[in-house]
Amino acid sequence: MKLEGLSENTSYYIRPYLKVGDKEYYGYAQQVKTLGAGKEYHPLDKDEAITDYDGYQLAWSDEFNIDGKPSNEWSYETGFVRNEELQWYQEKNASVSNGCLIIEGKKEKVVNPNYQAGSEDWKTNRNVAEYTSSSLTTQHSHVFKYGRFEVRAKLPSAEGSWPAIWTLGNTWDWPMNGEIDIMECYLVNGKRNILANACWSSPQQWVAVWNRSTTLLTHFIDRDADWMNKYHVWRMDWDASKICIYLDGELLNEINSSETQNQGWNGNTENPFSNDIDGFGHYILLNLAIGGNGGDPSNSLFPMRYEVDYVRVYQKK
Score class of each variant (00 low, 15 high):
Glu150Pro: 04
Ser61Ala: 14
Asp173Trp: 07
Trp174Gln: 06
Asp278Gln: 05
Phe144Gln: 06
Trp74Phe: 13
Gln57Pro: 06
Leu286Gln: 02
Lys316Asn: 11
Phe273Glu: 00
Trp210Met: 04
Lys92Val: 09
Trp227Ile: 03
Asp278Gly: 03
Met1Pro: 11
Trp234Ser: 12
Arg223Glu: 07
Lys109Asp: 09
Ser298Lys: 12
Ile255Asn: 00
Gln30Arg: 15
Tyr26Arg: 12
Cys199Ile: 03
Glu84Ser: 14
Ala208His: 02
Met1Asp: 14
Tyr53Asn: 12
Gly292Phe: 00
Val233Phe: 07
Tyr13Val: 15
Thr51Trp: 08
Gly264Ala: 08
Gly68Trp: 10
Val20Phe: 07
Lys145Phe: 05
Trp227Phe: 15
Gly68His: 13
His42Ile: 11
Asn72Arg: 14
Gly105Met: 02
Phe302Arg: 06
Trp265Glu: 10
Arg152Gln: 07
Ser11Asn: 10
Gly118Pro: 04
Gly190His: 10
Leu285Phe: 02
Glu159Met: 13
Trp174Arg: 05
Ile290Tyr: 01
Ser161Gly: 05
Arg82Tyr: 09
Ser75Val: 14
Ile180Phe: 03
Cys199His: 02
Tyr26Phe: 14
Gln204His: 09
Phe80His: 12
Leu155Lys: 01
Arg312Gln: 06
Leu6Arg: 07
Thr51Arg: 14
Tyr89Met: 11
Gly118Tyr: 03
Asp121Pro: 07
Arg148Ser: 07
Gly292Lys: 05
Leu288Lys: 01
Gly55Val: 15
Ser202Glu: 10
Leu252Met: 04
Arg305Met: 13
Lys145Val: 05
Ile180Tyr: 02
Trp60Asn: 04
Gly118Gln: 06
Leu86Cys: 11
Trp172Thr: 11
Asn125Ser: 11
Trp74Tyr: 13
Asn9Tyr: 15
Trp162Tyr: 06
Glu8Gln: 15
Gly21Leu: 10
Asp248Met: 00
Gln116Cys: 03
Val308Asn: 02
Ala289Pro: 00
Asp226His: 14
Asp296His: 09
Val32Phe: 11
Pro203Ala: 10
Ser141Ala: 11
